[in-house]
């Protein structure tokens, strides 16, 4: 299991809609390897976001187990789950969801401080992260001074700040045009590979798929791997 930071085993989740109970996830099993970027596609309402919330320790499944770095988190308290999110999971949201009153470097600093990182190492670490997403020159700007793509770059840097083993991206390109979308997905893919993380991108955007190692489709509450030729796609990236 050491090579699989995230393993979902036989997950079930249903929601109440009026007096009916709708089963969103049915016996879903899934895992990602280190250094691998997986895409999850599917029509809206198919349960992609529910899947991502459960994988990200935000939502508790009705039954089944989630192993994050080999540890079962399905029975943890809210407080413990917050800790798991802080240390083991990096989120990239649909809109960047940056904190509006923090400067770019402070966005990253906050995450580090919440995880009690040493202050001296911190500023170097923040700088290196910002360089890796090409945002160092904007480090003392507020989010409202940045473009959509720039915000998403900062959000990517923030997701990687605590050096988590799992990166979850929820439609990270939804608010970007196709050029920027490709650049952002390329960036996520590059860092995931370089840092040897397990990445999942939930998306509608076909342009994202060439950057991903595996593609899963959400169908009837389960994730089915699509058998496309990966090699050709990888070449087209370069």
């Amino acid at each position: 299991m050491g090579n699989f930071p995230l393993v979902l085993n036989q997950i079930n989740k249903s929601f109440n809609d009026g007096d009916k109970s709708i089963k969103i996830l049915k016996d879903l099993s899934f895992s990602v390897k280190k250094g691998e970027l997986a895409a999850v596609i599917g029509p809206s309402g198919s349960g992609k976001s529910t899947f991502l919330s459960i994988a990200g320790a935000l939502l508790t499944p009705d039954d089944g187990n989630i192993f994050i770095n080999g540890k079962d988190v399905s029975g943890l308290s809210d407080f413990q789950k917050a800790d798991v999110r802080l240390h083991s999971i990096g989120y990239i949201f649909q809109t960047s969801n940056l904190v509006p009153y923090l400067k770019v470097e402070e966005q990253l600093g906050l995450v580090l401080k919440m995880a009690n990182h040493n202050t001296e190492e911190k500023s170097d670490h923040v700088r290196i992260l910002l360089i890796s997403v090409g945002m160092e020159h904007r480090s003392s700007h507020y989010p409202h001074q940045l473009s959509g793509g720039e915000k998403q770059r900062v959000a990517i840097a923030r997701a990687f700040a605590n050096d988590p083993d799992i990166i979850l991206a929820d439609e990270p390109t939804a608010s970007l045009d196709s050029n920027r979308s490709a650049a952002i997905t390329g960036l996520i893919s590059r860092i995931v590979k370089k840092k040897n993380k397990a990445g999942i991108i939930v998306t509608h955007d076909e342009g994202v798929l060439p950057f991903c190692d595996r593609i899963y489709a959400m169908q009837d509450g389960q994730l089915l791997e699509q058998t496309t030729k990966r090699g050709t796609n990888n070449e087209s990236v370069q």
Binding site: F79, A82, D83, R85, L86, Y91, N97, P100, N162
Partner: peptide, 15 residues
Amino acid sequence: GQMGILKAIGAKTGF
């Protein structure tokens, strides 16, 4: 909403 985001990235309610 802001608080929700902070919680999602690992901030604790007490904090």
